[in-house]
Amino acid sequence: MTFTVEVTDRSLGQVMRIADACGAGTDQAMSLSTSRPASLVTAGRADDVVQDSDTATAEEIELAIG
């Protein structure tokens, strides 16, 4: 089963903390990846994306410098 959650960078930390509490990284049946859209067409929340923070998660940093 696959779930897709779309959040801004500002909220990503909270999502990662929830995933952490649910066993991501220790539960063999669970994997989690993050990605960034190359473009976005939306009627709402566009300002949220434009004004979003650009903070990476620790996992993104670690993968980036691998």
């Binding site: 930390g13 990662m16 952490d20 990284g25 620790a58 996992e59």
Partner: peptide, 15 residues
Amino acid sequence: VFWWHRRTAHRRTRV
């Protein structure tokens, strides 16, 4: 810098 980032943005006990 990474320690500061962990304290302010990451806020998780483990990675």
